[in-house]
Design a protein around this nucleic acid. Structure first.
Lengths: 345, 345
DNA sequence: TTGAAAGCGTTACCAG
DNA sequence: CTGGTAACGCTTTCAA
């Protein structure tokens, strides 16, 4: 803060006290007389004294700030998670620094480097779709950086993790389509290297198997960047539509993929759900007013952010190294709307 | 960074040099021999040395970080602005700290206090809908804190400002409705104290006047928190629908108001645009797939963030006090879709 | 070309 | 109860 601001020293000279006395008075130390405390605090208040947090950080070796890594805050799921994170971080007097990977592994590494060099006390991270190697995080973790994963996690690092029930979310969505009479359900999803892809695929698979349906690789398509670029989704849909045996429903697994699929099907004048039904993971608040209203799997983003931050704070504030880690699984919510209305049989 | 990390001192002792020599070598000072520089840099590289930015900040009196205040990042307009901000801030080696007011004046004051106490070098702010008094910012500004306003600005503080052409955006939208044959155009908007409300109202007014239409206070409704709470918009719509002379079109001026209006009209089974047409400010990427597709005024959020940051950086990096300030006005984009299809006359 | 020392604002230890 | 001093990690001035 170069723009003025008074320091302990200023108070000390003004009041003819020592710096250390003032410091202690301010921190309400038992060593200081009530009278001195009163004088100091009054002066501080009057002159709007604020301790310089930079100096405090340097002295105390921690910064009271936590770093966040998400793919992009434009995705409502992540902005909801961030709101959850902030709600508990601020409560605990912690500051947050948000960074975005835009689904690039490179950027992810750079962001984490940036954050750690800026002396964060802990890291909250959801991996990018591109990320395959978490060795760089492993290293930081070994060095003692508290890390909590959320949403897109890694098995390779033993720490707290907070996810939603991806298996059940997908199972429910697929089940719902099957119950509506849909028989050939395509799956457009994230790349197979990230955790949520596998978990969500498993739910899809289970539901199909239970109904005696085949798993057809031909209608399971991965978007390398989770739909970041419209072209990825466009390719997926073209591929599906060029099949002889076209799907009668699509189950998508990321906000971007879901809304882009809706956009493209509309553009191609394909009737939803008459020609192809659509259900997908999304946290958009607009699902009700989409055309058609969109059946979706909703994840408790806000709660996920809260929980993750609570666990991170536990790690940061722990007196001794923590070796017991927890993976918290939050329930998802299936909301059925017009895009998956039951088929006329 | 309590989790290890080596310091200049470590390098110095390891290499049997003084701390100051190492510091200078690292900063490529002309005072140091090439040989020493080489040895030091190699050692630093090998041991992955990073200067502690906290210590640097304390020493140099600035933190290389800028604070951002927006109403909420869940609003796509603001997340786009933030992306713009980040793109130029990171380029310049600056860090950003994002805070949200959730349209509360109190929170705004708290956030700014929090940011300034955390030694930001400059502030980028869009005021909350509740804010009437900017004296607290005025004070900081006088103390020398570089501030740049964007979107929702204040006349009371003389500094750089970046806005979109709110007058023209609204004029165009209203004009478009009039051209489509709509005759009674309601206006649901933000509270009158914030800048964008006035500017947008002026455009609406001008278009109506040009067509010889009356300005009817009865169909101009302010949402105290810009539609943060659904109830605000619900009241507005109920009020409009209870009129004898109901509007045949609505022009809304915030993302939240716009999408909530769409939601509520759909819920009431009011046909858009047959019974009531709808056009509004929004930056949602989903405008095309809404039901019906939504005519909108789009603001260049990303560019706004970039410009604002460039101006802020100019202020921060300026050698001498700046007294010439600029207000940059960015063009908006009118995109017409089904929600304002021309009336059958 | 190198190094010692002061200082940024704070806290903590130890003396008085 | 109060104050001097060292220390956090770095940069900078001044001497050597």
């Amino acid at each position: 803060m170069n723009f003025s601001s008074i320091t302990i020293k200023d108070i000390a000279t003004a009041l003819n006290l020592s710096v250390s006395t003032v410091s202690k008075a301010l921190r309400d130390s038992y060593e200081i007389s009530e009278n001195t405390k009163k004088i100091v605090n009054e002066y501080a208040l009057e002159h709007n004294y604020r301790p310089n947090p930079i100096a405090q950080s340097l002295k105390q070796g921690h910064s009271k700030s936590i770093g966040i890594v998400v793919s992009t805050i434009e995705n409502q799921f992540f902005s909801q998670v961030i709101n959850g994170i902030e709600s508990v971080a601020y409560e605990a007097g912690f500051n947050v620094i948000i960074t975005q990977t835009h689904e690039s592994s490179d950027l992810e590494v750079k962001n984490v480097a940036h954050l750690t060099h800026h002396s964060i006390d802990g890291l909250l991270i959801s991996l990018s779709t591109e990320t395959k190697d978490v060795e760089y995080l492993q290293k930081l973790h070994r060095q003692g950086l508290p890390i909590v994963f959320f949403d897109r996690i890694s098995d390779e690092i033993e720490t707290h993790k907070v996810i939603s029930d991806n298996f059940k979310g997908s199972y429910d969505a697929t089940r719902h389509l099957l119950d509506g009479g849909y028989k050939r359900i395509a799956h457009i999803t994230n790349p197979p290297n990230i955790s949520i892809t596998k978990e969500r695929f498993a739910g899809y698979q289970k539901a199909l198997e239970e109904s005696g349906m085949p798993i057809d690789e031909e209608i399971i398509i991965h978007c390398p960047h989770g739909g970041r670029d419209t072209g990825e989704v466009e390719n997926a849909i073209n591929q599906l539509l060029s099949l002889n045996d076209k799907p009668d429903a699509i189950f998508t697994t990321s906000d971007r993929i879901t809304t882009t699929t809706l956009f493209l099907l509309n553009k191609l004048k394909i009737k939803i759900p008459q020609e192809i039904a659509l259900i997908g993971y999304t946290n958009t608040t607009l699902a009700d007013v989409l055309n058609p209203s969109l059946s979706s799997v909703y994840q408790p983003g806000f709660e996920m952010g809260q929980k993750a931050t609570q666990k991170l704070l536990e790690l940061i504030l722990a007196k001794r190294p923590v070796h017991e880690f927890e993976t918290i699984v939050l329930p998802t919510q299936l909301v059925t709307r017009d895009s998956t209305a039951p088929k006329n049989r």
